[in-house]
């Protein structure tokens, strides 16, 4: 067989997390089961970083997350949840608990969607889905909850 382990590992990871084709010789059903298991694990990991977002979606969380994450490689649980929350906001599907969590995060940190979020140095106000959060000297408070 090919001695290029690096390339073959890369093909396998791409098939599992980035919608890449199944590498030659692998059994489709077990690899697909592994792909789904990775998505479920990732949904749990992101829910731990974004507990209110996940709680706000309740029983829909696993499906909403895996639909969004399928074929989209992770940028880490913090950014994954952040990106998903912003997309749900755009689609008007962000639940109030998720809006409050996103407002608090956006008041605390600056996140450009491309690199790791960085703490804000200056006071900041963030509004999301009717929720308002304020950050002063590193302390964040939810000023107004999102409407239920």
């Amino acid at each position: 067989m090919s001695g290029d382990l690096a390339a073959r590992q890369a093909e396998l990871v791409a098939a599992l997390v980035a919608g890449g084709p199944l590498p030659p010789g692998f059994a489709p059903a077990p690899v697909d089961a592994a792909r789904r298991a990775l998505l479920r694990k990732r949904a749990g990991d992101v829910a731990r970083h974004w507990p209110l977002l996940a709680a706000g979606l309740g029983a829909d969380w696993p499906t909403v997350f895996t639909d969004w994450a399928d074929g989209r490689p992770t940028n880490g649980s913090l950014r994954d949840g952040w990106d998903l929350a912003r997309e749900l906001r755009t689609r008007d599907m962000l639940p109030p608990l998720g809006a409050e969590e996103l407002a608090v995060r956006e008041a605390a940190s600056r996140y450009d969607g491309r690199a790791a979020p960085r703490p804000r140095r200056l006071p900041a106000l963030a509004r999301t889905g009717g929720a308002v959060a304020v950050q002063l000297a590193g302390r964040v408070r939810l000023l107004r909850p999102a409407p239920r």
């Binding site: 690096a6 590992q9 990871v13 997390v17 990775l38 694990k41």
Partner: peptide, 10 residues
Amino acid sequence: AGGLEAGHLL
């Protein structure tokens, strides 16, 4: 591998 994180042990 290839710049992508699998998110679990492979």
